[in-house]
Design a protein around this nucleic acid. Sequence first.
RNA 1: GUCCCGUUCGUCUAGAGGCCUAGGACUCGGCCCUUUCAAGGCCGCAACACGGGUUCGAAUCCCGUACGGGACGCCA
Length: 465
Amino acid sequence: MSVVTRFAPSPTGFLHIGGARTALYNWLFARRHDGRYLLRIEDTDTAREVPGAVEQIIESLTWLGIPPDEPPVSQRARQERHAEVARQLVAMGRAYYAYETPEELQAMRERAIAEGRPPRYDGAWRDRDPADAPPGVPGAIRLKAPRQGETVVEDLVQGTVRVANAELDDMIILRSDGRPTYLHAVVVDDHDMGITHVIRGDDHLTNTFRQCQVYDAMGWARPAFAHIPLIHGQDGAKLSKRHGAVSVLDFRDQGYLPEAVANYLLRLGWGHGDIEVIAMDEAARIFDLADVGRAAARFDYQKLAHLNGIWLRRADDERLTRLVLERLARRTEGAVGAITAERIAKLMAGLKERARTLEDLTDAAAFLARTVPLPMEPKAEGLLTPEARIALRELAASWNGVAWEPAALEAATRAHAEAKAMKLKDLAMPLRAALTGSTTSPPVFDVAAALGREETLARIAAVSG
RNA sequence: GUCCCGUUCGUCUAGAGGCCUAGGACUCGGCCCUUUCAAGGCCGCAACACGGGUUCGAAUCCCGUACGGGACGCCA
C-alpha cells in the first residue's frame, strides 16, 4: 500500500513554525516512502476563519520547499459527506440523537467539576426511545462509544497508548445545525482521502482515542498514527510571539534561508547520529518516525542563526546577490543600479562568509551602493588620523600601473609598506575605513577590486584630500 | 479534578544492559590562524530529575515520587 500523508491546518492565521515542522515531517515521510503528501484546510469553523490565511499557508509551505502534491482539500466542502456518515452511524445503531441544549451541557459540566467528577456527558439519550424526542428541536448526533474495555492506539512515535473506555463519553459528531464536529470530520476525510499515516502534534494524542472509535464503528481500517511533540519557547511555555518570530513568513522576512529553517526544524525533535547539517533531499532518504523524540523541544534562535550562516555560505553567489539586491531595493525604496549589482556579485564570496542572515549580508553589502563622501562609523573615523590620510594618498600613488585585482594590489601594498617601514595593518585598516566607512569588511583588496580602480581612488581621495 | 504523554550538559540531541571516565551541535570562555570581522582549527566549562527494585553489571528494564506538557467544547 502506498503512503499518503496530509497536513491539516485550520485557516485561522499565519502558518506557525510548529505547524511547519508538522508539515515537514509529513512531507519527509511521504518522500521517504515514495508516497503522496496532501494539504487539507480545516475550515469548518467559518467564524474563526481569517481571510487570506489559506494563501499564506500555501505561500509558506512553498517557500519552505514543501508545497503539497495536490491542490488543497476544503473540509467545509465535504460537510454533506460528514453528515451522511453520521446518519449512517445512527442507522447502524452506532450513534444516536441527543437533545440537550448547549446550556444544559454547560451546566452539566460545571456541576461535575464542582463535585470533583470528570466533566463528561451522562449518556442520557443513549438508550432513550427516539420517540421521546422533543418536537421541533433538532438533535445533535452522538457516537455510541463502547463502555467496556479499552481503546488502544499503536503510535509510531509515542508507542502503545491505551485508555479505559469508561474514561471516554459519547462525543457529538454532528451538531444540531447539521455541521460536523472536527473529530468526526477528520476521520471521514482521512478515510476518504486514503490517508495511511496521520502525523500531527501530540496535542491531538488524546483525541485519537475518540477518532479511533469512529473508525471502529464504521468498520474502517485505522491509519497509522504518529504524534510528534510540540515546540516550546526558550522558557518552556508554548512558543508565541513574545519569544520572537513564530510565523514562517516572519523567518523569511528576517533573512533566514528556507533550507536553514527546514534543517533546523528537522533537527528540533529528531536526531540521526551526530549529523547537524542536512539538506532535505538527503533527509528524505533517512527520515524515520522512530527517530523522532517524545519530549517537547525548546526553540533556539541562536542555533537557527548558526545553521543559517552555514547554509548562507553554501548558497550560490548569484542567488544571494539577487536576494540582497531585493532587500537593498526595499530599503532605499528604489531599484539598485547595475554598477552596484556588479560590485555585490563580485564581492559576494567574501561577504557571505561573514553573515548569518540575509539582513546581515545586506548590511555588509550596503557600502557598495554608496557614493562619496561615505558615512563613517566612529571607529572608522578614528582610524583616519592625519598621518593615515597622508599614508593612504601615498599608497594610492604607489598603485600606479598595478593590475587591478586583489593579489596584485596586495603585493604592491606590501611592497609599499616595506619601503615605508610600516606594518601592513597600519595601511590596511585605514584603507578599509576609507573604502567601506567601517572597520569590518571582506579582505580589503577584494573590496578594492570589487569597487574598481576609479571608485577606489575616489574614496581614498575623499578622505585624503 | 480525571485521563494521557514526557524528563540526558543552559538549549537541540547521540545513546536500544557492559563499547559511557556519557559523544556531537548551539551558546559561553581561552588559544591558534589573520589586514578587520567572520569562517576554520585546537582546548575548556557543563547533563543521565529523585527514590526504590531487577541484574555480575542500568542513562538504557520495572515500580513509585516530583516536576513539565497535553486533553477533557454543539473550537480546530
